[in-house]
Amino acid sequence: MIKHHPSEQLLSQYSLGELPATLSIAVSAHLEFCACCKSKVDTIEVAQADTAFADTTSPFDNDDFADMLSMITQSSDVDTVAQYEPEVFSYQSKELSLPRAIAAIDRSNFVQLGKLSRSRLKLDDGEMRASLLQIAPHGEIPHHTHTGFELTLLLDGEFSDEKGSYVPGDFIWLDARHNHQPTTAEGCLCFTVVNSALHFNKGLSKLLNPIGNLIY
Rank of each mutant, 00 (worst) to 15 (best):
V81H: 04
N109M: 12
S90T: 01
L121C: 08
L133M: 10
G148T: 05
K202P: 06
G126N: 05
G139N: 04
D170Q: 02
G164F: 05
R100K: 07
S131V: 11
K115V: 08
T184S: 12
W173A: 04
H199A: 04
Y166E: 13
M128W: 09
V111E: 14
C188G: 11
S108R: 04
L98E: 07
K163S: 13
G148C: 09
F171Y: 00
N195P: 02
F171K: 08
I141R: 02
I102T: 01
E150N: 15
D106K: 04
E140T: 05
S119P: 13
S160W: 15
H178A: 08
G164R: 15
P182M: 08
P142Q: 05
A176H: 09
A197E: 03
E95H: 14
R120E: 14
S90H: 08
F159T: 10
G148D: 09
V111W: 05
F191H: 06
L154V: 04
N109I: 14
C188I: 05
Y84W: 02
D175K: 10
Y166K: 12
R120T: 13
L96N: 10
A104I: 07
Q181V: 00
P86H: 07
E85V: 00
G187D: 03
E140A: 10
H144E: 00
I135C: 13
